[in-house]
């Protein structure tokens, strides 16, 4: 049945439109998602790789793009 339906879907060109829309929706979603994140959280995430190494200078105060 499903195969039958799919065998008869007309306009394969629709696939391109659907995929672009799908991508666009996901992209906008991720964008909004990222933009609503809090600065304090983003800063703590950025520091994760630096945390485990005591040899590094913890007082590094480079201003962040996210601030």
């Amino acid at each position: 049945m499903i195969k039958n339906v799919l065998t008869h879907i007309g306009g394969i060109g629709l696939y391109g439109i659907v995929s672009i829309c799908l991508f666009f929706a996901v992209f906008v979603g991720v964008l909004i998602w990222a933009l609503t994140l809090k600065k304090g959280y983003l800063n703590s995430m950025r520091q994760l790789p630096l945390e485990d190494d005591s040899r590094l200078d913890a007082a590094d105060t480079t201003p962040s793009r996210d601030e």
Binding site: V26, V30, A34, L37, R46, P49, S64, R65
Partner: peptide
Amino acid sequence: PKAANRPVFSYRLSIIHFW
């Protein structure tokens, strides 16, 4: 970030980059 001893430029950008 380890080698440069500073955090990644923008964590927000890395989220968008990944997805």
